[in-house]
């Protein structure tokens, strides 16, 4: 980052990286350690490998400046470096493919496929889900959706591998712009028929019915301003709040809250990828405890346009985290 337009050599530079063992066990000498970057420069003046652990975060900032009034022969440098090693609860991973197809000015369909895991190597699936919906776009900018979803929770302890859930949902979504920031609100009602174990031996199940309400607000704005034919980068921030209405679900109405932050990468074309960190605060109904869950979400968005006739509405579909 240049500090002085007339002196290009007056530069403030930042460097940061994170290196994590995100599943499984790495042997000691293969653990993330300071100084094992490509040019072995991180963590000056520590010896290489002085700081080592399963999760490593490093940040360095450096000021390079000229020492002479107008010449560039001599310069100086000051740097500050902060390596840190920490232990985190192993995160979960959510992978999603999200598809929207516009076949009419007023109508579109959407579906998504979800796969959730608690570890990548060894792979430890926890949930698979699919969702389909039909969207109606109103003239006033609302999008009304009705749809169905199936969720399968992986229960490896039991003979029965899947716990099924059927879900119907209705949703209203509204987008607006503030400067170059997109704001999306959506409110969703879900009718859930969930299969649950009734005893500790995990051999009998019942199906229970509950309603859930969720509200999402999402912001996204540009990081880089590139023309349409270049890869676009946008930041994304969202919060979603859930309430559950049945008493047997828990002693509180609060079900969970999800906070997300990350980057949306859109190469030229119909696809874009969102890489987000998600913090879930979840109420565990029977244990009467609140849990914090770290997760990473990688979502592939694809938006297709099947309209054959002239298109009256050309607004771009905003990728919304689901």
């Amino acid at each position: 980052m240049n500090l002085d337009k007339t002196r290009p050599r007056n530069v403030l530079a930042f460097w940061t990286y994170g290196w994590f063992v995100n599943s499984g066990t790495s042997p000691y000498l293969a653990l993330p350690a300071i100084g094992w970057d490509m040019f072995a420069r991180s963590g000056r003046p520590y010896t290489q490998g002085r700081i080592r652990g399963e999760d490593l975060v490093f940040a360095e900032t450096e000021w390079r400046f000229p020492l002479q009034k107008s010449k560039d022969k001599w310069g100086g440098v000051l740097f500050l470096s902060l390596p840190s090693q920490a232990q985190f609860a192993k995160p979960k991973y959510w992978f999603t493919y999200n598809h929207t197809g516009r076949f009419d000015d007023r109508w579109s369909f959407g579906f998504d496929i979800n796969y959730r895991t608690t570890g990548l190597i060894p792979l430890n699936s926890s949930l698979t889900a699919g969702r389909v919906g039909l969207n109606y776009h109103t003239k006033t900018g609302f999008r009304i959706t009705g749809g169905y979803a199936w969720f399968g929770t992986f229960a490896s302890e039991a003979d029965q591998i899947w716990l099924h859930e059927d879900r119907a949902y209705q949703q209203v979504q509204y987008n607006h712009k503030k400067g170059n920031i997109n704001v999306v609100h959506h409110l969703r009602i879900e009718q859930r028929w969930r299969q649950q174990f009734t005893n500790e031996d995990l051999d009998e199940t019942i199906s229970t019915f509950t309603n859930r309400y969720r509200y999402l607000i999402q912001f996204d704005g540009p990081i880089t301003n590139y023309p349409d034919n270049k890869t676009g980068f946008r930041w994304q921030l969202a919060n979603e709040f859930f309430i559950h209405n049945k008493e047997e679900v828990g002693y509180m109405l609060f079900d969970q809250n999800r906070t997300l932050a990350g980057v949306l990468i859109s190469p030229p074309g119909k696809m874009s990828v969102a890489v987000l960190y998600q913090l879930i605060v979840q109420q565990q109904p029977f244990l009467r405890e609140t849990f914090l869950i770290n997760s990473f979400r990688i979502t592939l968005f694809q938006t297709l346009d099947f309209r054959k006739k002239k298109k009256n509405i050309m607004e771009k579909e905003i990728p919304v985290i689901d």
């Binding site: 460097w15 994170g18 290196w19 995100n22 499984g24 042997p27 293969a30 190597i121």
Partner: peptide
Amino acid sequence: FPEFLGSTTNASQLWMEYRT
């Protein structure tokens, strides 16, 4: 680094870096 490719233990690592 899965065991079936010759690793002693199953593991995966993630590196994320940014400079400006």
